[in-house]
Amino acid sequence: MFEKYRKKSPWILHYNAGSCNGCDIEILASLSPKYDLERFGVVNTGNPKQSDIFLVTGPVTYRSRERLVELYTQMPEPKVVVAVGSCSCTGGVFRDMYNVEDRVDRYIPVDVYVAGCASSPELIIDGVVKALDILESKTKEMEFAKKLQNKPKIEDGIVSRKEMPRRVGENDEES
């Protein structure tokens, strides 16, 4: 039952891995009244353990890469990573600078790439809408895998994360 509501209102987590702020303020602007990303049930949270969509901006710098991977691993499955802006997709102008490692998909698997420097709120909305579709298909995949196994134990209506099949998550990290 919880899975059903979850795909309808995913929460997003935003991390700046070394960007120039341009994309960050555009994410903030897309939460503002004119674009209002919250129409899709999206809420910007500061807690990785409650989030489903991970918005990453900027190329990965030496000091932020550990935090990036840490935040990614703390998020529960299923999760979708959206790389916002040219520098997080490919490195952009910051490619080959000495303190920039590389694009985001070297470290964590990226599902959606949003181009633009800086990505406009429309593009961010497009990206999040696409991420919602991917989240839904990922949830279905997981439910399918779960049916193959025993039914998860439900205590007080909360699905225990320990009971979730490990296989799907591992496959995700390999891709």
């Binding site: 997709c89 959606v112 790439y113 949003v114 633009g116 696409k130």
Partner: peptide, 10 residues
Amino acid sequence: KKPTIGVASD
């Protein structure tokens, strides 16, 4: 024109 949104399979 706006750039398109890429997905992992692209």
